[in-house]
Computed example of a mutant assay.
Amino acid sequence: MPTYNTGQPSTVIYQADPAVVQHLHGVRESLHHSCKPYLNHKVKVQTIDGMMHEGIIAGMDSKHMYLMITVNTEPARGFYNPYYHPYPGTGYPFPAPINNAILPLVLFELLAISLV
């Protein structure tokens, strides 16, 4: 069985600044207090990367917000949609289309959340 302990002292590549860690804990607490009353409400979420998502807040844990989104079941030209089924309800080997999915969003990457 391989072991990863070589007996040599480890070299720290990165260590977060304690002030940043404390600030991130505050941001997480603020998000929980702000979003918890809006569970099961429709919202629009913008991430720090500029992505926009619209859906219903399905839940939260210490690291993620779970957003229930509607999956587009219409075929898009040039793109493969694994949820699309041209003949719904025909059974095996083709399942019925899935219209909803849960999208986990990392709390620290959320820039704005607004009610829709």
Rank of each mutant, 00 (worst) to 15 (best):
M1V: 05
M1G: 15
M1R: 14
P2Y: 09
P2L: 08
P2Q: 06
T3L: 12
T3S: 14
T6Y: 04
T6E: 03
G7D: 03
Q8P: 07
P9E: 11
T11H: 10
T11G: 01
T11I: 11
T11W: 05
V12R: 14
Y14M: 04
A16V: 05
D17R: 08
P18L: 09
A19P: 00
V20T: 02
V20S: 06
V21L: 08
Q22M: 02
Q22F: 03
H23K: 14
L24E: 15
H25E: 15
H25P: 00
V27R: 09
E29L: 07
S30K: 11
S30E: 15
H32I: 03
H33L: 09
S34D: 13
K36S: 11
P37L: 12
P37R: 12
P37E: 11
Y38C: 04
L39H: 04
H41W: 05
H41N: 12
H41E: 13
H41I: 00
K42E: 10
K42P: 06
K42M: 06
V43P: 08
V43H: 02
K44E: 12
V45D: 04
V45F: 06
V45Q: 01
Q46M: 10
Q46K: 12
Q46D: 00
Q46E: 09
T47W: 07
D49T: 15
G50A: 12
G50S: 15
G50Y: 00
G50D: 11
M51D: 13
M51A: 14
E54Y: 05
E54V: 07
G55A: 08
G55E: 08
G55C: 05
I56T: 15
I57N: 11
A58Q: 15
A58R: 07
G59A: 08
M60S: 07
D61G: 14
D61I: 01
D61K: 03
H64P: 01
H64F: 15
M65R: 07
M65D: 14
L67S: 09
M68H: 03
M68K: 13
T70A: 11
V71P: 06
N72Y: 02
N72T: 04
T73N: 13
E74M: 04
P75K: 15
A76F: 01
A76E: 14
R77C: 04
R77G: 03
R77M: 03
G78N: 07
F79E: 13
N81M: 10
N81V: 01
P82F: 01
P82T: 02
P82R: 13
Y84D: 04
Y84Q: 01
H85P: 00
P86A: 01
P86Y: 05
P86N: 12
Y87N: 13
P88E: 03
P88W: 06
G89P: 04
T90Q: 10
T90I: 07
G91T: 05
P93S: 04
P93I: 03
F94S: 14
P95L: 02
P95S: 09
P95E: 04
P97T: 11
N100Y: 12
N100A: 06
N100H: 13
N100C: 06
I102F: 06
L103H: 11
P104L: 09
P104V: 02
L105N: 12
L105V: 01
V106M: 09
E109P: 00
A112C: 02
I113A: 10
I113N: 07
L115A: 10
L115D: 06
V116W: 04
